[in-house]
Structures are given as C-alpha cells and as structure tokens.
Nucleic acid binder design. Structure first.
Lengths: 227, 227
DNA sequence: TTTAAAATAGTAGTAATACTATTATAAATA
DNA sequence: TATTTATAATAGTATTACTACTATTTTAAA
C-alpha cells in the first residue's frame, strides 16, 4: 500500500493553495523541473507559464514571486525530512543509532518509503543543494522569519540537536552542531560535484565518504571526553 | 609604518583594472557600501553609478556584471585572509596554536595589522557573510572554476587543511573539515543575527562562542583517538 | 430558469533591470 | 596641426517582474 503524502504548508507561502487545482499542481511539478534545469537565477514565471501552457498572470495568482515559490519547495523538503526523521527513529532506542540514521537521511535523496508525490524528488533534492541557502541569505530574512516561514528548518534543526543532547547531555553546542551538519551535508555534495579541491568526497555519488566524515566529526565532538 | 595592501587579482575578474583609476576605486569603495546596505539582489549598476556620479555604462566598462563585481570582492577577502593566515602563523611552531589562530582569523572582521585599504572592511566582512555563497551557488560555477576564479578560496582551504594534516597526519578528511569550518564560521554568525534558534551563539558579537564551538569540534575530530 | 455576483482566466500594459551600440569628447602621438 | 586612440556619455533594446483591467466561466440566489 502506498500513501499519498500530504504536508501541511504555511498559508503565507502562497496566494492560493497550489495543491487544490490542476494548474497549481502543474506549477509545482514543472517549477521543480525548470529550476533544477536552468538554475534559480535564470528561472522566470514567464518561462514556467509557457512550459505549462498558461499565462504569466496565472502563475502570479498562486505565488507572489519566484522567491516564494523556491521557499515553498525548500520548506516542503525540510518538513518532509523532519517527518522522515521522526518516522525513522521512532522505534529506535539507541541514541547513537538514531544519529547515524539522521546523517543517512540528510545525505540521501528523499526516498518514497513514506509514500509518493507527483513531482521529481531527485530534482527537488538538487534544488535544495544548489539553491536552498538563497531563501534565507536575503534582505528579507527577518521579515520572513517573523512570518514563521523558516519554522520547518528550525524544527528540523531542533530535532537533530535534541538527539545530540540525548547522546551527551553536557555538550553545549547542540544547535550549532545540528545546523552545521545539515549545511555541511549539502555543501560537501556540491563541492564534490563542482569544486573537488574543497572536499575529500570523491564524486557526487560518493555519499559514503560524506557520511563517514560527518559521523566521525559528530561523534568526536559529542564524545564526553572530547577535549 | 603602515603599508598599503596590494593583492594581485585575477585579470579575468574585471574588464579594466579598477585599482588604476579614480573611477575604478570609487566603484570598489561605493560598491562595497551599497551591496552591504541594500543586499546583492537589490543592488544594481545603475544605483551604483548614481551613487558615484557616473553613468551605468561607466561601471560596465570595469565589470562585466554585478556577479563579477561580487566575485571580485569575495575573492579579495579570500586572498587577504590567506595572506593573513600565512603571515600570522609564520613564526609559530605549535600546530595546535596555528589552528587556534586560524579559527580566530576566520571569525573576526579583517583587521588592519597588515596594512590599510581605502574601503570599509567591516562592510566587506558582512558581504562575505551574507552573499559569498552566491558566487559559487550558480549555474556557471564550472565555467568560473575553469577560469580559476575560485583559486583563492581553494588555496585558503588547502592551507587550512594542511594545518589539520600537520596536527594529525592520519586524519582522512582534512579538506572537508576545512571547507566545513570556513562555511560554519560564517553561517553561525549569520544565524546568531537572524535565525537564533539555529545556533548556540547568543548574538552577532558573541564571537567567543563561535570560536569555542569550532575549536572543540576541530580538535575533537582531529584527535588521534577520535572514534 | 433566469440573473446576479463571485471566482477565475487572459490581455495588455508599466517600471525597472541588465545590458549594448552609437556618438561625442578628450588625450596622446605622428 | 592632424589623426589616431582612449575614454566617457547618450540613447537605445530585450527581458524581467510585476499590475490593472477586461473577459469568461462557475456558482448561487430570485
């Protein structure tokens, strides 16, 4: 049995819920493909509209601008990942095992174990790697943050930080380590692909090295006798 | 005695060397101020030209586009930082002490110990924090990389990785740790300022926590008995 | 069953951005 | 002094990021 995944999105992310109409679903589906293919900077609502077979104004009725659409995608990923983390470690008792599983989830494309969606998860993972930082590295971080648009990212980070604290209650930088690990997982993948001198990861498919690097770093940092 | 700092920049970064004319120097000086004030997305050559008192075309004669100008600034920072690292650890013998000094340099605004420049170093540091990732998170990474435009970043990373390897020759992820630490230093600063739930750093002036976090992480990871 | 109002979609704009081509002016050299 | 040569300013264009308005369809009330 396969479930259809439904993630409740913050209503401030969109002007009209894209999940409720055919056009809306097409905006999501084709939007992910197009941003993935041409990169966020070259992506425009006009190109998206042409791709779908609607008008530019049609897209604008769903999303305020392309930044909001990107934020919608990235937020979906964060939410899905947190849900995936919770679901995966649910039946585990060993804190170390939980952390290993989380690092595993962070470095892999989203799998379909929880259910299916009607867009390209691989493309979405690539968007997260290449573009996700841009959603908060902007002049309206504070405004967006006040509107709780980054809540899923902060929840994910807090959840991982809690695992670190459970493993070693005396470790004082759980949140910093969590955000560092999330970002590093993505950056190491990107560097392996484009700037290999910045990493020991051999290729973009070499997820095992990313995991080994992160595991060694995390458990060393969390070690009670860590200097 | 104060020296005037001169950093040799890759000639592919600009159309005409901005250091050789008054207008060029103004583009650098006012460009840094403007990007810092309004953020890279809102920044345009037209606004810069108006600010300086020249024309848009005048700016275009020096830089191909605003991305290249940003890359020029970020590259200057990387080059200066590497020079600063070399200069600072030059007379040190203890590998641990060297690493501590590097982490210190990474988390602080550029100081004037090496000499003076005629632009706002504080503003440049903020640009690096807020915008530097955008120079490589773009569709033309590979092209820019082929033109050696990221060499200073890679050199800086290699230099830090070498210090890690000197401290522990058996550590297998020196490069990954170096790039992670560089990025983390900047991200933790940004998170403290805008998304505090993602960090244990209390405020943007709380550099000591950033340093303590990074030091603990680095030395734990590099520890020979690290699990 | 007609009619009005509400929702949705399409057309046609505008201001700003990111440039480029052309013309004008100043400086340097023959 | 004439003439290249270098540099700067003017005036464009195509594209982007929207918005206002009009047309059409759907829904609901009379």
């Amino acid at each position: 049995m396969k479930l259809q995944i439904q993630i409740k999105m913050n209503e401030d992310l969109y002007l009209r819920n894209p999940e409720q109409t055919e056009l809306g679903k097409n905006i999501i589906k084709h939007g992910i493909q197009l941003i993935h293919k041409m990169g966020f900077e070259s992506f425009t609502f006009k190109k998206l509209a042409e791709d779908i077979g609607t008008t530019e104004a049609g897209v604008y009725r769903y999303f305020e601008n392309k930044h909001r659409l990107l934020l919608y995608f990235v937020t979906w990923y964060w939410s899905y990942l947190e849900y995936n983390v919770v679901f995966n470690i649910n039946n585990m008792t060993n804190p170390e095992e939980k952390i290993r599983r989380v690092l595993d989830l962070l470095t892999h494309e989203l799998d379909d174990s929880l259910g299916t969606v009607d867009f390209d998860k691989k493309a979405l993972y690539n968007i997260v790697i290449n573009e996700s930082n841009k959603v908060y590295l902007s002049k309206d971080v504070d405004e967006n943050n006040s509107a709780h648009l980054f809540k899923p990212y902060k929840d994910l980070c807090a959840r991982i930080a809690d695992l670190f604290s459970a493993y070693n209650p005396n470790y004082p930088y759980a949140r910093s380590l969590a955000s560092t690990v999330i970002e590093a997982a993505h950056f190491q993948y990107f560097f392996a692909q484009h700037l290999p001198r910045l990493t020991n990861v051999k290729s973009k498919d070499d997820t095992s090295t990313i995991i080994e690097f992160l595991e060694q770093m995390v458990f060393a940092a969390l070690s009670p006798d860590g200097k």
